[in-house]
Design a protein around this nucleic acid. Structure first.
Ligand SMILES: [Mn+2]
Ligand SMILES: [Mn+2]
Ligand SMILES: [Zn+2]
Ligand SMILES: [Zn+2]
Lengths: 134, 134
DNA sequence: TCTTAAATAGGATTTATTCCTATTTAAGTT
DNA sequence: AACTTAAATAGGAATAAATCCTATTTAAGA
């Protein structure tokens, strides 16, 4: 995927097959944990080492290309970094949804209440998705 | 602590020294990870087994006596379950603060936007606390 | 004090993550 | 197209985290 080659180059990271496979995989799943990434990639790259996977996940996070997604009662997942958004976890089908809503009023209320200067927010909600209700 | 004996009894759990020590420790720290709990308890109860600690943490969570607190770039922490609130993590001093602000408008916006029925929300913000700014 | 189901200790096992280093490779240079 | 080299990988070892197993202990009700 050409897009990720550019992303990697912008951070002076080499476009290895392994890295591109990891990024492609995470991109196509949206949100995915490390074992699922491995299971998905290993049939295509049987030599893929878990050490390489872990190392790359950590490196890509520190270059802000990936982001960790911590969900209640779930293994840590990863996603391609995008604009800030909220995560919805359906407790029935385990699907993870992105929602883009305005959080500024909440952040301002928190700032006012606490004197804390907020740099990032991580918002997860769980419940039942539209499809599981039907 | 008498309070926790009652809490345990309400869930038909025996008030063992180990459980009370775990609950006391978590309560006094507010938010704490599993290794810190162990380090804090083992001088008083040298026979305390890590298996007992892990088992109790998991049991107490499933009885809704404890709650996990997942913070960005931090080991998972635990707290005594209380009324819903927001967590602030200071990236300078690593302190974790509770804030109680109204989240209903945000939840309603998310519901409207997604068709998702929300049962719980987990909100974490990081930045700089009042003390670290001074 | 007696009884018993629940809980613990602590070592074994399993799972998760990181470390190490010889070999390979991406990508820039000639 | 071959050359160069720093970066990256493979894969096994080491370390860390979490769970399992079961003989022994204990909380708590009778
Ligand atoms: Mn997302
Ligand atoms: Mn809290
Ligand atoms: Zn669903
Ligand atoms: Zn601070």
């Amino acid at each position: 995927m050409e897009r990720f080659k550019d992303v990697l180059k912008a951070s002076n990271l080499k476009s290895t097959h392994q890295r591109l496979a990891i990024l492609d995989c995470i991109d196509s799943f949206g949100h995915i944990d490390i074992d699922a990434i491995y299971e998905h990639i290993v049939p295509k790259y049987p030599s893929m080492s878990k050490a390489t996977l872990y190392r790359n996940i950590n490196d890509l996070i520190s270059f802000h290309i990936l982001e960790e997604v911590k969900l209640p009662n779930q293994k840590q997942q990863y996603e391609i970094k995008k604009v800030p958004h909220i995560h919805l976890l359906c407790t029935h089908c385990s699907k993870v949804e992105d929602v883009f809503v305005e959080t500024k009023p909440l952040l301002e209320a928190v700032t006012l209440n606490s004197g804390f200067t907020i740099s990032n927010s991580f918002i997860v909600m769980n419940g039942t998705c539209k499809e599981c209700k039907a």
